[in-house]
């Protein structure tokens, strides 16, 4: 049984360009703004690991390879 807080998705925040297609496409509402800014000056996204069901939609819809489904 997986722990609810176990890391399910790795987020490579430095790659994020801030299109937020992931936020728009996540059916679980598990992705939100992280409040952190990367070197590009983009406010990045963070995944609520508890809500995530590892469906992979964020990986699929991210143009910039930010997400890795573990």
């Amino acid at each position: 049984m997986q722990s609810e807080t176990m890391e399910k998705v790795k987020v490579n925040e430095e790659r994020c360009k801030g299109c937020y297609l992931c936020i728009a496409s996540c059916r679980k509402g598990a992705i939100r703004l992280s409040g952190r800014t990367n070197k590009r000056g983009i406010v990045t996204v963070a995944v609520d690991q508890a809500l995530c069901v590892q469906c992979g939609v964020c990986y699929t819809m991210c143009p910039d390879l930010v997400f890795e489904i573990l």
Binding site: K17, G18, I42, Q54, Y59, L65, E68, L70
Partner: peptide, 27 residues
Amino acid sequence: MAKSAPSIMKCENMFCAGCGHSLFDRL
């Protein structure tokens, strides 16, 4: 199911945020 960038993608792309080219390229 584990999903990560295919190994042929060697670095970050140069496209604008939300560009469709980069989505296609990864596919």
